[in-house]
Design a protein around this nucleic acid. Structure first.
Lengths: 206, 206
DNA sequence: CTGAATTCTGGACATCGTGTCTATATTTGT
DNA sequence: ACAAATATAGACACGATGTCCAGAATTCAG
């Protein structure tokens, strides 16, 4: 029953096109007037589609459309992070910071919606959580390598500290940080991250 | 016209009582079922009030009620932070961390709504922003005292890094951090904050 | 304590956005 | 070219919102 890759037939061209149009329209509208007072009809108007068409694709209202749209980008980032092997990591290996800044620069509008809009709060929270978890895993490896059993600050706290700081700076940068380029931003965050980690596990200076 | 403090007469007891009841009801409901599918009537029912009464106080719907309710607590925190004199601050003087953790512990429910609910996103963002600004000011003082003109990392970035990290850990703690008490949490954050700052302004070690 | 002002109440009402449905037109896969 | 899937426009019921009103209840001021 529908196991072979053949049987799972690719969706109609119209579906993909429609969903992309709706997503683009919603993102544009959010950046213009904010999320809350956008009606379904506003979206379909902007996308040049009939109102009824919307319900052929989404039963969860605006939320579902926004989630789908943002989820695609988030998955892309998550995949990139996952692809980074946990082994082969020296003490100076980049935290996800570099990747995150690069990715955010590439999808600026979507990230601004993701980090600023209340509607996307759940999603961005989930993403922060994911990155925190990822940091925590990576962190366990590092500790074992250096031969530390018990850091001064518990690992989950360190992880949430770092991922929240990263997102905070990322958000600031997207809104008013055109002065600095991706590499500079990533380097600055990394600098502070490393120091915070060292202090948290009880190691002195550089 | 209405300048003397006499003219501004204190609001009716019923108004205060009603608004408090409505606020309490909303907070309770949010923690139970989340913000989105709460109807005005749900709130007035819970508060034992007529539905029409709601509109005698708020014309901005649920949002206005929630904002008013949270704003009161936030103002309390902001006032406490403002009260802390900028002068008289040694290098080990507490960042707002200690105060924030204490305040959050005292108003746990409200803070959980503030930090978790999408609806409060604007408010919590504003609070983070305020604290970031406060950090930035304090930071300028510290730099002058130590005789550093230009930190490696620009001050606004440092400020947003720190305030975001603080809020991230705070959020984590409110949800699943019953293990650690206020002082421990504040101390851990302070430890990491100090190290991050030192690295950001280009000073070595402790 | 008493009267006047304010607030609360419960019901009726118009309005708006949502979601569903149907018949028809259009586009796509084969 | 034909069958299947999708888009469309309009009609419809429904629920929540916000407003209004007349009367009851509470509070304030004297």
């Amino acid at each position: 029953m529908d196991i072979s890759p053949e049987t799972a037939r690719r969706p109609d061209r119209r579906r993909e096109r429609t969903q992309r149009q709706l997503g683009d329209a919603l993102i544009a509208l959010i950046l213009e007037r904010g999320y809350d007072d956008i009606r379904i009809e506003d979206i379909t108007d902007r996308a040049n589609l009939g109102r009824a068409t919307f319900y052929l694709h989404f039963h969860g209202g605006k939320d579902e459309l926004l989630l789908l749209t943002l989820q695609r980008v988030i998955d892309e980032l998550v995949d990139q992070i996952q692809a980074m092997p946990l082994s082969q990591i020296g003490i100076e290996s980049p935290f996800p910071s570099q990747i995150a800044f690069e990715h955010a620069a590439k999808h600026r509008d979507l990230y601004r919606v993701l980090l600023r809009s209340h509607s996307a709060h759940r999603l961005s929270a989930r993403l922060r959580e994911h990155i925190a978890l990822r940091i925590e895993q990576r962190f366990a490896d590092r500790l074992a390598a250096v031969g530390i059993e018990m850091p001064l600050v518990p690992a989950p706290i360190i992880a949430h500290y770092l991922s929240s700081a990263l997102f905070g700076v990322l958000e600031w940068w997207l809104e008013r940080g055109d002065l600095y380029d991706v590499d500079t931003m990533a380097a600055m965050v990394r600098q502070m991250h490393m120091a915070a980690i060292m202090a948290a596990i009880g190691v002195e200076g550089t």
